[in-house]
């Protein structure tokens, strides 16, 4: 394919491309003065598939707006949002205690105790393999409700931090579910905690305005 016009064009453009550092004055001016005229439009017709595509897209747009248009309203969210009832303040009431407990756990506990329940060395004690978690459920619920302050020994390691109180955030069912979840996860083998148990403990300790210490609960410290 040696179109002579094509060859010539190529040559022209090679002139635009300098080589190395040599400056040849004539060549330089060639590069500058030789260019094609200012561009203008040709009048080829559109390929037929383009209008076809456009019609197809417009039909699709009609469908999409019909399907997802919603109402022309400020509170018109994607359908499922409304079904889930943006109305309930504390949702997630379906599923088994373990599922619900996991939801509470990933929401409120992981930032310290981590997803794997291992805690953070020297900072936050592990829940996995912890006797405080799997032991007396009353002490565990008391800690979750009101928090824990000061030194505590878990698995032979000493921690000196403070856990916040959750009594104001979590209801009885949530405390029960999350207790059940951590007592039965990561190889832990504890029994379930029921909302009624939590309710009783909450009532019994309702006057308490500050976190526990390990000493108060008779835990190693």
């Amino acid at each position: 394919m040696t179109d002579p016009r094509h060859e010539k064009e190529q040559q022209k453009h090679r002139l635009n491309e300098p080589e190395g550092d040599e400056i040849d004055v004539t060549r330089m001016h060639l590069g500058l003065t030789r260019e094609h005229g200012e561009p203008h439009e040709g009048y080829e017709p559109m390929p037929l598939w383009l209008p076809t595509l456009i019609v197809g897209l417009l039909v699709w747009a009609g469908y999409y707006i019909g399907r997802y248009g919603g109402t022309f309203d400020a509170n018109s969210y994607d359908p499922v949002t409304i079904e889930e009832g943006a109305g309930s303040g504390n949702g997630a009431s379906q599923g088994s205690p373990m599922d619900r407990g996991k939801n509470v756990f990933v929401s409120t506990c992981v930032s310290c105790h981590q997803t794997n329940g291992e805690g953070v060395p020297d900072q936050y004690p592990p829940l996995a393999g912890s006797s405080v978690v799997t032991g007396d459920s009353k002490k565990l619920v008391q800690i979750i409700l009101h928090g824990l302050n000061g030194p505590l020994v878990i698995g032979g390691k000493r921690y000196d931090g403070s856990m916040p109180a959750w009594a104001g955030t979590l209801d009885d069912a949530q405390v029960a579910d999350v207790s059940t979840y951590i007592r039965k996860s990561w190889g832990n083998k504890g029994d379930e905690v029921t909302p009624d148990q939590v309710k009783a403990i909450r009532a019994a300790t309702s006057g308490r305005g500050q976190p526990w210490t390990a000493a108060e609960l008779g835990l190693p410290h």
Binding site: A74, V80, E84, A86, G87, S88, G89, G91, S107
Partner: peptide, 20 residues
Amino acid sequence: RAKQNGSDMERGWGQRPTVA
């Protein structure tokens, strides 16, 4: 976000979708 748009709520980031 609502469940259809991601697992925000399953992740425990919130209990309901946020609204305007």
